[in-house]
Design a protein around this nucleic acid. Sequence first.
DNA 1: TGAAAATATAAGTATATGCTTATATGATAA
DNA 2: TTATCATATAAGCATATACTTATATTTTCA
Lengths: 114, 114
Amino acid sequence: MEKTIIGLEQAAQTLKLLGDKTRLTILGLVKNGECCVCEFVEVLQMSQPSVSQHLRKLRDAGLVKEQRRGQWIFYSLNTAHETYPIIRQVLDQIPGQQEKLKALAEAGLRIQCD
Amino acid sequence: MEKTIIGLEQAAQTLKLLGDKTRLTILGLVKNGECCVCEFVEVLQMSQPSVSQHLRKLRDAGLVKEQRRGQWIFYSLNTAHETYPIIRQVLDQIPGQQEKLKALAEAGLRIQCD
DNA sequence: TGAAAATATAAGTATATGCTTATATGATAA
DNA sequence: TTATCATATAAGCATATACTTATATTTTCA
């Protein structure tokens, strides 16, 4: 009656990526939409290279996808990935990060592209 | 509408513990019952000190609890812990480890105490 | 074309992690 | 009490991780 999709090894690798406060916050931020790197930098209050390196790990594992729009690169959850169900479960059980994006928007720092 | 119980920091710390193949297997093994250390050693095919060290991490974080019975120490899921819901969700999404315990039982290596 | 902005990558470093071997503790049985 | 079994702990070591600073790449705009 099990409907396990991913193997234990891949689950462990995915959970290791989630087991970091910065990356977990990043995933919480893109839970309902996309963000660009400078927004992560602003919200997380950490250096741009450090943020980029975390994003690369998430992207290499397929957990997020990137899309360039102009000079910005936007990251979003890769809902098509096989690990997405487990990630969704986890994200639904931790505090939402939406209010941080709201604060960004109120400060006029949210990036909007057309 | 969020019913998040644990904070992001604690979630990250818990997920880091789950992000290891050995520990994830251990949790899978105690998903439906308790096991003693020698059973973990047998199933995982790794050294006893290494297993003990993983168990200590899980116990220190409160994810599992231990109970001594005779010369054996049995470990089981700490269902009362605040991180239990998230752990349960994860365990329900990875392959079960029950068949390994079944193999142990058939080999007459399962520990039974009264 | 050239400068500036956004992002990525590389290299270096300090700390964390997971194993090993050796030893300690605690319970049982002779 | 002494030996043995099950488990825990300590110390040492190799690798992984997450940051820093410096530099490269790509896009936009003047």
